[in-house]
Structures are given as structure tokens and as C-alpha cells.
Design a protein around this nucleic acid. Structure first.
Lengths: 338, 338
DNA sequence: TTAAATTATGTTAGCGATAACATGATGGTT
DNA sequence: AACCATCATGTTATCGCTAACATAATTTAA
């Protein structure tokens, strides 16, 4: 193992003190320009790379942000991470990525590790199975800056950057209404998940605003996946002729894909017979036989904003508790017939 | 900012020395069981969390692996990261993720940072624009364990875990040949990228093994994206009637999607008129009008194997230089007509 | 019972860097 | 020439922890 060069060794090589070397390397004032040049050159020649571990210990600052991700494979999170990375890199912070695999136990373990590693702040999206929020309170009590992104916990006084699920669901539903559709159905997601609930609420908001009475039969429990969308749609199509929906708002794109399959299999056309819209702009949405109208969520922006807020907290440029909402963008394609 | 509890404070609270506290917390022998219990309990009560930065400094080991990723958004890499994470977590290592955005300059900067942070080893997939390999040599010279994954550099004596692009391309081509197709075309990728080259070679291997002479007109330069696949296919379809291909091997799935579009637009059927296969099992492959036959690459496995090898190097359980090849899996769907 | 072996605990030094203070060198001012 | 400001450099202590050695307490063996 080749010995690693330290600042002390540079100092010895030049016959000066370690402190002067440190000052020269860190571009501090009060160093003679000639000395600085000598130090820089010697450092380069000797292949010196500073030890940030030692530096962090004395400065009590690591310039590192801990990022807790529940599910790295889902395309949404990598995009968020890209946003976080971009901002962090610019601001001179590094990130340590920790993956919980949607496991509450692992989330606690991972947060402990990040604290042990003395991160300057934490960005967390909570795992689905989390029910106990004690760990977040511990983090807050330690005075460690914390920002939730995408999946937030309310009532802890913690900053949060999230999507406007309710507003976006209302927006896309309104879009259908404005184009004259009347009997509009909703294929909803799992009942206990916040985003399903918010999207359902948004759907109701839009429908109720029209004054038309909401037909509860047009709200069918589905799920986040294709099969659930497929089954939910079959259920809708089984309604008596006059009661069938003319348009459908699916809780997300995969559910919409399943629903589309059911519609086509029933010999109906999209959007002439049944119009359909999704949510989240899946990479496949554009490639469907009838390209899907949907809501595009700016995951990158969530990452960016969360990182910006966190760094502000770390550097004490801000200490307010905010809830930052990133608005979804309506992407109109063929499937809504608009 | 609440003061953080240190081992020293636990020692003071109990009237014992810091060293005994350290021993108790680290499950070292030669500590009285009663003392150990007292220490553990006091630590818990006081909310003690060890400072790994200080520990790393004295032990000269951080239990951290640096992972360099060229492009986090591409679904391949998150899957690799998941594999790396899984193995690392089991073995007690943390990972620091660094994203280069395919930028050579940034890759150097990022590797320097990781070294500064005293990672115990590096997992690197080189960025597309990298042409100078000096940085890797520096890493090797420092004695820092290094393993390339997916995109490797040959001739540096560095470990490498990669896919068998050439073999897999030959395999999928052979599959077409075995099902009786004769005029088989190849839509290739960018010429200067290694994987394009390997896939082209694999294609040629398979065709030449049949003894049939290779028609160079059937190899058209395309690219990794849909548009390039689309244009390349148009070019193939413009060949004189008898010279047109009966089957096509695309360099990857997106290129195949583009090609499919061109085929359908020309009024031809898949696979009855033209069969087509892709490469890399894109999430959309299954959902196409004619589900795409392709090669599934086990990205997770690449991550796993690379991390295992790196940890072996770090812990000096191995010092051999290996090239580990992960084999692609043929996924037969509708588009090849087999 | 007393020396030797074993176990529990303490002391000192140092990981590699920097803050805070101290000192030495230079130069300008009256 | 004497004095003070300014700049360049050095010294010491410390960040929180652990290795290595030293010592004290206890047990075992003869």
C-alpha cells in the first residue's frame, strides 16, 4: 500500500510549518505568493490529495447530504436524485445515497448511519411501511436539517417538497369537462395511500364544481398497476348501457394502460367511444396505440427544490418551515380526444 | 444547536475512562459485563450516536465505497446501483453515489472527491466522453481498490464486470437464423462506442458462421435512439425488392421501436413481412403492438458482482484481476415470429 | 501464602487537519 | 530613530475516537 502524502510531509519537504501549507492550499490570505506557489507545486508533484475526513472532524462539517430513497428502481426517484445531485454539486456538497427498499426497519438503520457519518442534512422520502415517526423527531431534536421530498409527514414541523396531486387531478378532470364530457369515471388507487386519496379528492373537486351530481358508481377501486386498471375498467364497462362512462381518469399511467386494454378488447375505440387520461407521464405513455393524455410530474424539480431548501437550512440562510408544492403539467395527447 | 453526546461524556457520567466506554460500545473483550451494560444503557439514555468520522480517521478505514455513475436516469444504472447497495449493505459498507452526467471533466473531479473522502474502494462505469485514462492509473497507484462495471477500460489491469454484448448479439441473431430467416439486417449503433462495435461483431459472427456471404448493404448505421432506428429502417426498406431484409437485429430496443414504426408505416406486418429483434429489454418492449423479442441484461447482477469483487479486494480476500462476464438472456416474444 | 497468570481499567499518543493565539519580519510614519 | 501597523509564519491545542502500552484488580496455581 503506497503511503499517502499528508500536509505535514509537504511542510517537511519545504522546511515550513503545516499551518502555512494548510493556508496555502486553502487560498487563505496572509501567505506570501512565492510560498503559496511552492506549496501548490510541491503538493502537485507529491500527488497530495487532502483528507476530508480529518478536515470534517475539526470543522464539524462534512459538506455532505444524506439522501434516503425508498425505491431506486422506480424511474421517478432517479430523476429526483439527478435534481438533488445537480444542486448539491454546484453548492459544493456531496451526497450519500441510502436505499431503504420500502422497509421501515431499514430506514431507521440507514438514518442512524447517515447521522453517524455526520451528514450536514437529510433529504428523506419515507418508505411505505413507516408508521412510527420517532426517528424524524430525533433528527429534528438533534438540530439536523431535514427536508422531506415527495412523501411527507405532516405535523412534525418539517419542510416538505411535494407534488400537487389533488390540484393536478382536478386539472386533468376539468380538462375533460371543458371538452364536453359528462359521464366521467375515476379508477382510483389503494385506499390507504395518500396520493390515491389526494387524486380522488381532486377528481371529486372538479366534478362537483360543475354542479352535476357525482355518480358514485363511476368511482371504482383499482390500484397502481395494469391488472387493477384492467379489472376496474371491465367493471365500468359492465354498467348498464346509458350509465357507462364517456371518459375515464385513471389514478396513474399503468392503470390507464390496463384500462385501455379492456376498452379495446370490448371492441370500443379510444377516444371516440371512451376517452381516457392517466397520471405521471410514464415513459410508455407516448408510445401507446392511442398516446395517453396525462399529468407530467417534474421529479427533477422536486429534487432541485428540496436540495436548495436543505442547503439554505444548513447554511442558515433560512429557518422557515415551508411546504413547497411542485405543480404537475397537463400533457395533452390523443387519448382524451381533445 | 443541541450539543452532541460523545463517548467522553458517557465516561464522565459514569466516572470511568473513555477507553472503557469505547471497548464496551464496540463489543470488545476484557470488559466487565456489568460495566458494559451500564455503558450501553447510559449511551442509549443520553442519545449517543458514534462519530464515524473520528473513527474513520484513526482506523484509516471508512467502510465506504464510491460509486461513479455516468447517467442516473437511464433505467439500467439504478438497477445496477440496487445490486451494489444490496451487497454493500450486507457487508457493512455504505456507498457514496457520484453522478458524472457523461462528462469526462466531472468524472475526474468526482473521483478526486471520493478519494478525498477516503473511500475504501471505487466502482466506476466510465463516461462516454472519457479519452484519457490517467486518473484510473493514479487510483491504481495509490493502491485504492477499483472495479469497472459495464463500461470497462482494457489494458490497465483493472477488474471488470461487464455484459457479453458480442456473445448475446450472436445469440439473438442465431435465434433468427435457426428459425429459417435468411436475409437478416443489422441496424447498428454509434461507431465509436464499444458496445455498438461488440454487437455488430456478434451479429457478423453469427451470420458468417452460417457460411452465407454477408451482404454489407444489410448493415446500416443507426444509433441508440428511436429516430435513428426509424431512418435506418427506411433505408433498408428502400432496397430493391428482392434485396430487402426478411428480419432485422437492432442495436437496442429504442432503435427497434423506431424501426417498427417505419415497417408499419410502409404497410408491412411484423413479423409476417419483417421480423425484428432488439437488445436490452426496455420496459416498453413488452407493450408494443408486436411485443419485442430482445436480450435481457441483468443489471442487478452486474452491480452485485462488481460490489462483491470490490469488497473482496478491500478486505484482501482476493487480489487477482478478473474479467467477469454476465450473460444476456434471450427473451422470445412475438416480434421475431418464432 | 505468594508468585504467576488472567482480566479489567487507565494513560498516552496520534489519526490529519485547522482555529486561535503568539511571534517574528517588514515597512511606513512622525 | 522609535513606534505601530501589517503581513507572514510558527506553536499549541483540539475535533472524537482507538491502538498500544501501562497499571491495577482479581483469580489461579504451586
Amino acid at each position: 500500500m503506497p503511503k499517502r502524502v499528508t500536509a505535514k510531509e509537504i511542510a517537511q519537504a519545504l522546511g515550513i510549518s503545516t499551518m502555512t501549507v494548510s493556508r496555502a492550499l486553502n487560498n487563505r490570505p496572509n501567505v506570501d505568493e512565492k510560498t503559496r506557489q511552492k506549496v501548490l507545486e510541491t503538493a502537485r508533484k507529491m500527488g497530495y490529495i487532502p483528507n476530508l475526513i480529518a478536515k470534517s472532524l475539526v470543522l464539524r462539517k462534512t459538506s455532505t447530504i444524506g439522501v434516503v430513497v425508498p425505491e431506486i428502481t422506480h424511474s421517478f426517484f432517479p430523476e429526483v436524485v439527478r435534481g438533488i445531485e445537480e444542486v448539491s454539486y454546484q453548492a459544493g456538497y456531496h451526497i450519500i445515497l441510502a436505499h431503504t427498499n420500502e422497509n421501515a426497519q431499514r430506514e431507521i438503520s440507514v438514518i442512524h448511519t447517515l447521522i453517524s457519518k455526520q451528514v450536514d442534512g437529510l433529504l428523506v422520502s419515507i418508505s411505505q411501511s413507516v408508521e412510527n415517526f420517532e426517528i424524524y423527531q430525533q433528527v429534528v431534536q438533534r438540530g439536523l436539517p431535514l427536508v422531506f421530498y415527495d412523501r411527507c409527514v405532516k405535523g412534525l414541523g418539517v419542510n416538505c417538497v411535494r407534488l400537487d396531486d389533488r390540484e393536478s387531478a382536478a386539472k386533468i378532470t376539468r380538462h375533460l369537462i371543458e371538452h364536453g364530457y359528462e359521464r366521467i369515471a375515476h379508477i382510483s388507487g389503494p385506499q390507504n395511500v395518500l396520493i390515491s386519496e389526494m387524486r380522488l379528492k381532486g377528481f371529486k373537486d372538479a366534478v362537483e364544481a360543475t354542479g352535476i351530481e357525482l355518480d358514485e358508481r363511476l368511482i371504482v377501486p383499482g390500484g397502481f398497476h395494469e391488472e387493477s386498471g384492467y379489472r376496474a375498467m371491465q367493471q365500468l364497462l359492465a354498467l348498464p348501457a346509458g350509465k357507462r362512462p364517456r371518459a375515464v381518469v385513471a389514478v396513474n399511467d399503468p392503470a390507464a394502460f390496463g384500462a385501455m386494454k379492456a376498452i379495446l378488447e370490448a371492441g370500443l375505440r379510444i377516444p371516440q367511444d371512451v376517452a381516457i387520461v392517466g397520471f405521471s407521464d410514464d415513459i410508455r405513455a407516448e408510445l401507446m396505440v392511442s398516446p395517453l393524455t396525462t399529468i407530467r410530474q417534474n421529479a427533477y424539480e422536486i429534487g432541485r427544490r428540496a436540495a436548495l431548501k436543505l442547503i439554505d437550512l444548513i447554511e442558515e440562510k433560512s429557518n422557515s418551515v415551508e411546504e413547497i408544492v411542485i405543480h404537475g403539467e397537463l400533457v395533452v395527447r390523443h387519448s382524451c380526444g381533445c
